[in-house]
């Protein structure tokens, strides 16, 4: 009996190996997706959900997903997927370096590589395309929107994210240029993406008695904390009120604040890359050439005076 089981196991393994080796020809496009762990953030959760909804068998794909926040684990997943004979490798790398060897292996095996969300330090010939957010552009869109409000004065409380993170650097840059051009920076301080730190920063400014009319928070949670500090002091905020509140990331609850007119602006950090990836794969399958290697996603900035319930439903994460 034991022997029989062992034989069966060996047979099963052999079949699995045979099935696993070489390209499969079952009419589906096989994609291997390596992503960061969805529990990393709300952004990542939305990103993962989007990918899972797009790369379905109904859309002609067979997708395998692997998650890790560690680069070396991701590289192992990539090697495994190449051995499994996927057609496309979709990658959001945990770290920018260390990918050359495995991507060369992919090239040799005829696996096309697409990067999403994050780019890597490797020779561009090793991948077909990369779809990324431009954090600088997000900050610029927000600053331009604020400029277009044509306020009498610009006295800004600027609450930054964790110092040194890509989102913080990008979202701070455009505003720093504006301060250099004459806007007043009442306070620029890091709230470390946290509600209560942001709330304390704003309470501190209110206690000091300085005047301000804009709160620029680099994510929604900090904008929420800042708004609470204003509520506590009885300072009105939102559309047509004393203080303008700006946030980022487009959480559903944040967009609802916009809808209610409590906040004025919310900038998107677009987690929905699946449709871009889908289009590129369709083009490559049809034998077309891609016009550009780096695709920067459209990212919206929502204005409280024009936002609709449909926007909240479609873009809220």
């Amino acid at each position: 009996m034991k022997k029989f089981l062992a034989m069966l196991l060996v047979a099963a393994m052999a079949v699995a190996c045979l099935a696993g080796c070489g390209k499969k020809d079952d009419g589906f496009i096989h994609v291997g997706i390596i992503n960061n762990d969805p529990s990393e953030s709300g952004y990542r959760t939305a990103n993962d959900r989007d990918l899972k909804n797009t790369f379905t068998e109904a859309n002609g794909y067979k997708a395998t997903f692997n998650y890790s926040l560690k680069n070396d684990e991701q590289i192992q997943f990539a090697e495994q997927m190449i051995n499994d004979g996927v057609d496309y490798l979709l990658l959001s790398a945990a770290a920018t370096s260390g990918w050359d060897t495995v991507l060369k292996k992919a090239q040799k095996a005829g696996v096309k590589v697409l990067l999403f969300d994050r780019t890597i330090d490797a020779d561009p010939s090793l991948y077909e395309a990369s779809i990324v957010s431009d954090m600088d552009k997000e900050g610029q869109t927000a600053a331009d929107w604020l400029k277009a409000q044509k306020l009498d004065k610009y006295e800004v409380i600027h609450i930054q994210g964790v110092m040194g993170s890509a989102a913080q650097i990008g979202r701070t840059k455009a505003m720093d240029a504006m301060y250099a051009q004459g806007w007043t920076k009442v306070v620029q301080q890091t709230g470390n993406w946290s509600e209560s730190e942001a709330q304390q920063i704003v309470e501190s400014v209110i206690a000091s008695g300085k005047s301000f009319n804009v709160i620029y928070a680099e994510n929604d949670n900090m904008a929420k904390g800042a708004a609470l500090a204003l509520d506590k002091a009885g300072i009105s905020h939102g559309v047509g009120k004393d203080v303008i509140i700006m946030g980022f990331d487009c959480n559903q609850w944040a967009l609802e604040e916009l809808l209610k007119g409590n906040w004025n602006y919310d900038g998107q950090c677009n987690p929905f890359q699946a449709s871009y990836l889908n289009n590129i794969i369709k083009k490559l399958e049809a034998g077309e050439k891609l016009s550009q290697k780096t695709v920067i996603m459209d990212e919206k900035g929502f204005d409280a005076s024009t936002i609709t319930q449909a926007d909240v439903d479609n873009y809220g994460i």
Binding site: E203, S204, A207, S208, G209, L230, K232, A233, G234
Partner: peptide, 21 residues
């Protein structure tokens, strides 16, 4: 010295609260 100042304000829900560092 203004650090220790406590202001009596009316918050958005219409209640009187003390505000300050």
């Amino acid at each position: 010295p203004g650090f220790f100042e406590i202001k009596v304000v009316t918050n958005t829900s219409g209640h009187t609260v003390w505000n300050g560092n």
